[in-house]
């Protein structure tokens, strides 16, 4: 871990200014991913701006009838919120499928969205990785890729986004609210928040330097039955091979997003339109552009079968 200076910001704009004005600065909230990466010198900030005192830790109702979730709301608090459990069950289910109780107590809403990939070649600084060191190549391609992406990947990077929470947010059409150093706020729909790697896999989202996530907003409840199924080799405390977040209606219509398969939560609205035709039709559309490796080709079939299980459960 490289040496760094540390400060606690008092307002969102001050935090944004502190980071925007310092090329080596980063925000820290829960720290569960950032410190992990700093120990390995995958992240090497020279200054940390701690945002824990910004008061962005409340969940409020919006005038549109949805919820505004402060960026510092812990994963545990978000999953446990009465309104979330009642109206956005897919979000609670996704969060409690991720990490461990200890990590969820510390991890924040904004931080969860900004998690970096768990690709083992990204984590091993001896290996080539375009995400960690642009232009160095991708050791994962042709390597151990069972956990890695099958769609939305590129010749530069086949990493996945590891978040469970984000998969649910994608299916709920959430939006990310930010503020920049000038105090200017904006809202980014979740589907446009994470970028695909292309030939710049080190750019993972659309945030500008110093831009701070202040909240995640959920539109008004969409009804339906809420499902999140995460498939992994052990029963808990592991990243997804494949996960499916789905909101299904009584008439068989609905929407689904997939985790563990792509560099961002994977949802294809045109595929949602096939829901009443069954999992096969949805998967065929959603994964039409899949280009898996020989080690992870099973993920496409697994995604279909997992969705099929949820559809069957919805019918039952």
């Amino acid at each position: 871990m490289k040496a760094f200076t540390y400060e606690r910001a008092r307002t969102p704009a001050a935090a944004a200014a502190a980071v925007a004005g310092n090329k080596g600065a980063k925000f820290i909230a829960g720290g569960t991913n950032l410190l992990d990466l700093m120990k390995l010198e995958i992240e090497t900030p020279t200054h940390l701006v701690d945002v824990q005192d910004l008061g962005l830790d409340r969940i409020e109702e919006t005038k549109e009838g949805g919820l505004r979730i402060g960026t510092l709301v812990s994963n545990t608090a978000l999953a446990a919120d009465r309104r979330v459990r009642k109206d956005y069950g897919v979000l609670t289910r996704a969060i409690v499928a991720g990490a461990s109780g200890q990590l969820r107590n510390k991890a924040t809403t904004g931080g969860n969205l900004l998690q970096r990939t768990r690709c083992p070649y990204f984590y091993d600084t001896n290996q080539a990785c375009n995400k960690r060191k642009p232009g160095s190549g991708c050791a994962a391609i042709g390597g151990f890729s069972r956990q890695l992406g099958v769609i939305g990947t590129s010749d530069s990077c086949i990493a996945t986004h590891p978040s469970d929470m984000a998969i649910a947010l994608r299916v709920l059409d959430a939006a990310v609210e930010t503020v920049d150093a000038s105090g200017k706020a904006r809202s980014i729909v979740i589907g446009e928040f994470h970028r695909l790697p292309g030939n710049t896999p080190h750019l993972e989202n659309v945030l500008q330097p110093g831009e701070l996530i202040t909240a995640v907003t959920l539109p008004k409840p969409i009804g339906g039955r809420h499902f999140y199924h995460k498939v992994r080799d052990r029963a808990s405390y592991a990243f997804a091979l494949v996960s499916v977040a789905a909101v299904l209606n009584e008439d068989g219509s609905g929407r689904a997003a997939f985790g563990g398969v792509a560099p961002r939560p994977w949802r294809v609205e045109a595929a949602d339109a096939q829901m009443r035709s069954g999992a096969g039709a949805v998967a065929k559309t959603a994964f039409a552009e899949a280009r898996p490796t020989h080690e992870n080709a099973f993920k496409v079939a697994l995604a279909e079968r997992t969705l099929a299980a949820l559809i069957a459960e919805n019918r039952a």
Binding site: P120, Q127, A139, G143, F144, R234, A235, S236, Y237
Partner: peptide, 23 residues
């Protein structure tokens, strides 16, 4: 095993999965 570079790729306790309570 990464058979090109000759190392165990999943070299931590997140990558090398051992049973947890729930298993």
């Amino acid at each position: 095993v990464d058979k090109r570079f000759g190392f165990f790729v999943n070299h931590d306790l997140a990558g090398y999965e051992v049973p947890v309570h729930a298993d």
